[in-house]
Design a binder for these strands. Sequence first.
DNA 1: GGAATGATGTACT
DNA 2: GTACATCATTCCG
Length: 194
Amino acid sequence: MRYQARLTRAFYARRADRVAQDLIGCVLVHDASEGRVAGRIVETEAYLDRDDPASHAHPGPTSRNASMFGPPGRAYVYLSYGVHHCFNVVTGAAGSGQAVLVRALEPLEGAELMGRRRGRDAVRELCSGPGKLAQALGIGPVHDGASLLAGALSIRARVAEPHVARGTRVGITKAAELPLRFGDAGSRFLSRPL
DNA sequence: GGAATGATGTACT
DNA sequence: GTACATCATTCCG
């Protein structure tokens, strides 16, 4: 399958809430040795700079969140609840500590490989959550800090502008009321309704 | 050195 | 809807 061009550094070098909104409808692609897997982004969350108490960047740079303080257009991958990996895109000016969490995808290519990785069949459940999509796409700790501007991981421009809805972020206790979750409200592949 | 804490997912009632 | 696995990171002593 053929996709649009990669998003550029200029796309990522903007505020996280803006990038999160514009990522809806774009296509996340991973070209691994086992094959290509790709999905349309239907749900994201913005994590702002150090002033956002829910962000991993809030305490300032540490060994875990170092990628968040690197240049935009790179991945930030971390382990959640000791079990699942979550995939983020670093945004904003280099060193500003902003990121967008990709929470759900609509599988477009490689659904069989995704299913093998997850040990499941239901296409609708393959990427409907941050931990699920990381596992389905074969994204792990080795991708922390990897560039999306070149290499096996990439995000491709969207073809048509979707209707983007806003909501509140999932699973956080601080600043839980901020409307920093974005999604394609009509999609059946969300982690939960908006 | 030790304890608390998650940007979750799954299984079970 | 509720319970719980599971571990790196962080904070405190």
